[in-house]
Amino acid sequence: MSSDNPPTRMASGVDLHAVRPYGDTLSDGLVQLSFSLPIPPGPEAREAARRLAAQMGLNEPQIYHEADLGYGFSFWILYGKCRFHVDLTRIVVPKIEAPAMSLEEINDLLREKAGRRLRVVGACSGTDAHTVGIDAILNMKGFAGEYGLERYPAFEVFNLGSQVPNEVLLAKVRELKADAVLVSQVVTQKDVHLNNLAEWVDMVEADGLRNDLLMVCGGPRITHEVALELGFDAGFGTGTTPRTVAAWIAHEWVRRHG
């Protein structure tokens, strides 16, 4: 994820028009899989697990482990050969467009173009209490050896913490005249995070604030593509470092206002 990584290289002989999983031989399609079934183990359950794997697209599904979880449940570990392939050359994924910049470069850019500190509001919104993500991006201390946005003279940061209802967040965004809002969603169940994010976008739009705000979301289940579908300007997934977010905010603000 860091720009310091060695350049990506392709394994030789791969057909980019037909990519399939790799176990130990090109195009063998080998996949590992585990799941539980709400039936006790036994010969019929074994066949049921095998057939399910076959219907998932695995040729020669092979059961390597079965266990009795008790109370009518069983656990299965299988391997099989995936019969599908994908054409890599036809895949287009929206990506965040922001140049890699250092902390100093970001500060210099905003000092020159904005002439003031950008106000960044962050929250772990809805019912989510897990602030590890938003804290990593915003707190002074930062994450993975990079300082958080609080450390940047170019930003004035307001971290509202956990379980912030969207109504409260909206009121805060108004009160603080935020330039950018970062919403974090870490732990989820039954897609509650998506509903919450969609509601947030709707509320901001209904309130007429949408065009004044850089709207960002982040979390382990967030991709830039999902974020765009939900109506955000950017989405950041696991492993994102503070500098990446800072650079995007700076770059995007300047693109819009500079």
Binding site: F35, S36, A67, L69, F73, F75, V186, V187, Q189, P220
Partner: peptide
Amino acid sequence: EAMHTPHIHDRTL
């Protein structure tokens, strides 16, 4: 951990 509330076999494992 950090993904979802545990699935039934996560705990047994």
